[in-house]
Amino acid sequence: MSNLPPPSILVQNVSLIYNHRLIFSKLNTFFPSGKINIILGASGIGKSSLLKMIAGLQPCHQGIIQANDHHPLLNRISYMGQQDFLMPWARIIQNIMLGNKLRGETPEPQRALHILEQVGLSHVAKAYPSELSGGMRQRIALARTLYENRPIVLMDEPFSALDSVTRTNMQTYTANLLKGKTVILITHDPFEACRLGEQIQIMTGYPASLYNAPIVKGTIPHPLTSLSLQKAQAHLLSLLMEKTSL
């Protein structure tokens, strides 16, 4: 399965009613394969719900969400949320290999250690989550996501609780380590969207719809000092404000 290109994801006519309110109606979009796809929007607009529906965590009553190869998405997805959800009773290395345990597979500690090295935290393999800072914990959550080795990675505002330095570092790790996977990343930060986005969509309105936004040319993660990154960020923010005020 890993030799095949990661699937792209198609969302067709998906509607969601929550608490008698139409969150979005007949939403259509496409997330191309092997790219970091950004959904940018204000809080409470329905971004997380869409992501949860793609992840199969929330039922999709109307419309279709499918991979371009028509195989089910369910066992090809790994999900990373705003909180790290590390298990406080398990050591870091056990936390990373949680998926194996939950599926009754043999864990691969060597591979887990290698991934820990990639996120620069091999020295805490035997520690417990409570001994780590918030930024480190989120890096462990990223390592756990990487260890799952799934072709599709869904990220729901994964860095929003972090300080700006840690957040920027996490963006770099994400861009480098998730290369080649189909990533859908939700954020409310235009800077994050521009720095990582290979496709950017703005989600706005009641009921919400998606608009394509321009991306920064070149390879991600874009360097912080890049002028085009700064410009794109400003442009995206004004676009977001304009769409939101509609």
Binding site: K52, A55, G56, L57, L74, G81, G99, L102, R103
Partner: peptide, 9 residues
């Protein structure tokens, strides 16, 4: 949610 996306029984 995490365990569900990890296909836990």
């Amino acid at each position: 949610d995490l365990s569900k996306t990890m296909n836990a029984s």
